[in-house]
Design a protein around this nucleic acid. Structure first.
Length: 489
RNA sequence: CGGGGUAUAGCGCAGUCCGGUUAGCGUACCUGCUUUGGGAGCAGGGGGUCGUAGGUUCGAAUCCUACUACCCCGACCA
């Protein structure tokens, strides 16, 4: 069998790039750093969107849409925010092209320069808080719980499909509250929504934590995150939830009248996940034969491949399979019956493995005689023959089993590759292969030096951190608990 | 933006050092026959501004210059 993609052990990074392309998820675009998300990749993203969107609505949020273009002056209203994003903003300076006098296509019309240049949103806090100023007058207008699904642009130096692209799709929630506690509760609530989504739908275990000052979102008081381990032991930040304090309310002068008639600044949060989750999903479970998708997010959960020699045999197989397809669909299982005669069964097997379809059924003449069907599961590659009677329940159970199996596999992998280090030498060795829990003196200087020397960063201070007296692995200064270090995507 | 590499058919590559038939191979594609339980076989066929723009030369995929894009390693970042 021809290898479709390089193996993970040969070249992990090449394996990822090739997998994304060969599985038909995405490809590079003519514009550097941007990507074309192909139908199969977008189908997975849509499933993520639908699930998350429902979770947001279940927690009281509404969708809205704010514009792509933001007046340049808005960005500079919040000092930390501009500091964080200015370096990677694309700027719109003109609004018209004209025919080149030399006849070489079109050129920018110098007459059409904008009075105020516009930036393409790298995130929408500024334009949204500018609106909130008008939306909020009294405590009766609060809270505002808004989410938007949008594209944003951050001009990155080095890009990789899904993991880091110049333009990416995401959702960004932006909420406004009357009290600090309510905003903090919202921040925590959304972090938990993300963690639940990652674990229950993506089958990807995550560690919830709070970012150190140097990793914090530009403009936030606190940034919370979920961190996942990829199969090469590196960490990937899968979602963030920010407690913004009153920073944006101050910057945009968003005040409200309390019940007591006093004027106070509004408290804010923002939270987001992006198409980067696609990268996380791919790297969390897939193997050298292709994608391994969790059943809950797989666009096709079951594929049925007929094996036949003559057209009459296909007709006989269809008689058995067509009702089966209806039954599976009635149970809410997405199924594809691949009757194409342009490809042989072996080709189809390899193709659906590459695409990560969780369950494959194969039915041929021998099965028709015996009333059986071959059932193959993608996660373990195990095959078995099952009676066609009752196959729907079997498949339904199998999908659940695959969902929990790949979660457990990912969780075991993370646990095996998460170690504690008590000396710097030990730390340097361990952090090459996974997560390391170690004591840190709490200073940005130490964090920076460790990063320079080892490439590892503090991914987060875990929320479930145990109180433990210890000494910083780098400086030996006292520490009250271990933080999570790893190399990161 | 620094260092290194690459650019030839949809995809993967050879040819470039040492300029000289009609630019080649694998795969994919099209047609036909045989096939179909793990990426089928045979036969025939189509597909190329050799990344772009200049230059050297009787002659350039090949030599020279500039540019662009992609990959790897740094700096930056979700």
């Amino acid at each position: 069998m021809a290898k479709a993609i390089p193996s993970r052990s040969e070249d992990y990074s090449l394996w990822y790039n090739e997998l994304v392309k060969k599985a038909g998820l995405a490809e590079n675009s003519p514009v550097r750093g941007c990507m074309v998300i192909k139908p199969y990749g977008f189908a997975i993203w849509e499933k993520m969107q639908q699930t998350l969107d429902q979770m947001f609505k279940d927690t009281g949020h509404e969708n809205a849409y704010f514009p792509l273009l933001i007046p340049k002056s808005f960005l500079s209203k919040e000092a930390d925010h501009v500091e964080g994003f200015a370096k990677e903003c694309a700027v719109v300076t003109h609004y018209r092209l004209k025919n080149d006098e030399g006849g070489k296509g079109v050129v920018v019309d110098p007459e059409a320069r904008l009075e105020e240049e516009l930036i393409i949103r790298p995130t929408s806090e500024t334009v949204i808080w500018d609106s909130y100023k008008n939306w909020i007058q009294s405590y009766r207008d609060l809270p505002i719980l808004v989410n938007q699904w949008a594209n944003v642009m951050r001009w990155e130096m080095r890009t990789r499909l899904f993991l880091r692209t110049a333009e990416f799709l995401w959702q960004e929630g932006h909420t406004a509250h009357a009290t600090k506690q309510e905003a903090i509760d919202e921040t925590n609530q959304m972090l938990n929504v993300y963690a639940t989504f990652a674990e229950e739908f993506m089958a990807m275990p995550v560690i919830k934590g709070v970012k150190t000052e140097s990793e914090r979102f530009a403009g936030a008081v606190d940034t919370y995150c979920i961190e996942a381990m990829m199969q090469d032991g590196k960490a990937l930040q899968a979602g963030t939830s920010h407690f913004l304090g009153q920073n944006f309310a101050k910057a945009f002068d968003v005040k409200f009248a309390t019940k007591e008639g006093k004027e106070e600044l509004v408290w804010g949060t923002s939270w987001g996940v992006s198409t980067r989750l696609m990268g996380a999903l791919i790297m969390a479970h897939s193997d050298d034969d292709g994608l391994v998708l969790p059943p809950k997010l797989a666009p096709i959960q079951v594929v049925i491949v007929p094996i036949y020699f003559k057209d009459e045999q296909l007709a006989q197989i269809e008689e058995v399979v067509n009702p089966l397809v209806s039954e599976l669909k009635a149970k809410g299982i997405s199924v594809k019956f691949d009757t194409r005669d342009t490809h042989k069964p072996g080709w189809k097997f390899a193709e659906y493995e590459l695409k990560g379809v969780p369950v494959r059924l194969a039915i041929g003449p021998k099965d028709l005689e015996k009333g059986t069907v071959e059932v193959a599961r993608r996660d373990t590659k195990e095959k078995s023959f099952e009676k066609i009677d009752g196959i729907v329940d079997h498949v339904s159970g199998l999908l659940e089993e695959i969902q929990s199996n790949i979660y457990n596999k990912a969780k075991n992998f993370r646990e095996e590759n998460t170690k504690s280090a008590d000396t710097y030498d030990e730390f340097k060795e361990l952090v090459e292969h996974g997560f390391v829990l170690a004591h840190w003196d709490g200073t940005a200087e130490t964090e920076e030096k460790i990063k320079e020397e080892t490439k590892a960063t503090i991914r987060c201070i875990p929320l479930d951190q145990q109180k433990e007296e210890g000494k910083c692995i780098f400086t030996g200064k006292p520490s009250e608990g271990r933080v999570l270090f790893a190399k990161a995507y």
